[in-house]
């Protein structure tokens, strides 16, 4: 598979589902390009979730399952954001799938 994103003239490899092959290649420009490929412009609200996921991964070395993400987001960003509805509005194909992909993380363990 030679699938890759083109970012500022550089090639960033991804797997057949669009997840980065090497998390070390992630930066904000890469996130923007992945988001574009998903048809989701990067708003402040989306950045908030993507940055949260990156911090979570840094701390625990995994991408959280959606239920865990929702709960943790509520703690960190406020209870009004702790709902599946809020997250699915931002990432219609699923926060686990799309937000993790934009954050450069592997597919979440136990993701449904």
């Amino acid at each position: 598979m030679d699938a890759a994103y083109q970012v500022d003239g550089k090639t960033v490899a991804h797997d057949e589902e669009g997840y980065l092959t090497d998390i070390g290649q992630w930066n904000e420009a890469v996130a923007g390009i992945i988001a574009e490929a998903e048809g989701l412009p990067m708003t402040a609200e989306r950045w908030e979730v993507v940055n949260f996921l990156r911090e979570y991964y840094q701390e625990y070395q995994i991408a959280p399952a959606v239920r865990v993400l929702t709960k943790a987001i509520g703690k960190k960003l406020g209870p009004e954001k702790a709902s599946n509805k809020y997250l699915y509005e931002l990432f219609p194909y699923g926060p686990a799938k799309q937000a993790c992909k934009i954050a450069g993380l592997p597919k979440p363990t136990g993701c449904v």
Partner: peptide, 9 residues
Amino acid sequence: KTYRALEGY
């Protein structure tokens, strides 16, 4: 580090 995530799970 992942064992510390168990509580959140």
